[in-house]
Amino acid sequence: MAHTATPAHSGNLSLPVIPLAELLPWAIFGGLLLILALYFVGAEQGATSLFSGMYVHEFVHDGRHLLGFPCH
């Protein structure tokens, strides 16, 4: 009882094309979010601190060590 796999349809499969003008704003937004996250994990303490206190530092403390950023 041998069975062979056959495609569900034998027509041409075409992938949707996303125009660069539609993709670019989302790529910029994602890049800015990544840079902001990198700042908070890697540099939000001491002289470069945007927020007073240690709340942000303590919130991202374990992530900071996981990514190799020294903090103490």
Rank of each mutant, 00 (worst) to 15 (best):
G53S: 02
G63S: 12
P7A: 02
A43K: 05
H72D: 14
F59C: 09
Y55I: 03
I35V: 15
G11D: 13
A8S: 11
S52F: 02
T6L: 11
I18N: 00
A37W: 11
S49H: 10
G53K: 01
P25H: 02
F29C: 06
A2P: 14
P25T: 04
L32S: 05
T48R: 15
I35F: 13
H65W: 06
A43P: 01
H61G: 03
V17Y: 01
C71R: 15
E22Y: 07
L34C: 11
T4C: 06
A43T: 02
H61V: 03
D62M: 09
G63L: 12
S10C: 11
F59L: 15
F69Q: 06
M54Y: 03
L33D: 07
G46N: 07
E58N: 04
P19H: 08
G31H: 02
S49A: 15
M1Y: 03
P70C: 02
H3R: 04
A27F: 03
A43R: 11
G30D: 04
S52I: 03
L50S: 09
H72Y: 07
V56K: 00
L50D: 05
L38Q: 05
L24R: 09
M1P: 00
N12H: 10
G46P: 04
A37N: 06
V60A: 01
F29S: 08
T4R: 09
G42I: 12
C71E: 14
Q45E: 06
G53A: 01
P25I: 03
L38M: 04
H57E: 01
H65A: 06
L50Q: 14
L32E: 05
H72Q: 12
H72T: 12
G46M: 10
I18E: 01
S49R: 14
E22S: 15
V41D: 01
H9Y: 06
T4A: 08
P16K: 08
V60P: 05
H3P: 00
A5R: 03
G53F: 00
G42H: 11
G68T: 04
P7Y: 00
L24N: 03
L20Y: 01
G11F: 11
A2H: 14
F59I: 14
N12P: 00
V17F: 02
L32R: 06
L15R: 12
L20R: 00
T48S: 15
M1E: 05
L50I: 15
F59N: 04
M1L: 07
G53D: 05
G68M: 08
T4M: 11
H65C: 05
S52D: 05
L20A: 08
